[in-house]
């Protein structure tokens, strides 16, 4: 277990997202109004920075690029989403927001095709 302080509760406005660097690990903190959540910073679809592309409303997080959506509290898929959001364990101690980072959470993305195209014109 490795609990790390990320920020103060008032660093992130209600219904918004903010990305922090925690000893080299990028963490996205969401303020739902009454609670906080912590996610990896990128959309599981196409590596978008959710801090920029994400919209928080009514407990739903929407990536504005291709309208993937998730329940902010649980990371469950809604709408167009095809992969759930991953969450870091989070707790609040007074004004401090802490997350438990065992290791950096990352999604697997579709890699560029490895197919050799040297013979394209042959």
């Amino acid at each position: 277990m490795s609990w790390k302080r990320v920020c103060s509760a008032n660093d992130v406005a209600a219904n918004s997202l903010k990305q922090f660097d925690v000893d080299g690990v990028p963490v996205l903190i969401a303020n739902l109004g009454d609670e906080f959540r912590a996610y990896p910073p990128l959309c599981p679809h196409m590596e978008e920075r959710l801090e920029e592309s994400g919209i928080c409303e009514g407990g739903l997080l929407t990536c504005s690029k291709h309208l993937w959506q998730w329940e902010m509290r649980t990371g469950e898929m809604r709408g167009e989403a095809e992969k759930p959001l991953l969450l870091y364990e989070l707790k609040q101690e007074n004004d401090d927001v802490l997350v438990n980072i065992e290791k950096e959470l990352e999604y697997e993305y579709e890699e560029d095709s490895e197919e050799d195209d040297d013979g394209f014109w042959d």
């Binding site: 196409m46 978008e48 560029d112």
Partner: peptide
């Protein structure tokens, strides 16, 4: 990424 594009 760009406002209407994705990284890579």
């Amino acid at each position: 990424g760009q406002p209407s594009g994705n990284p890579k």
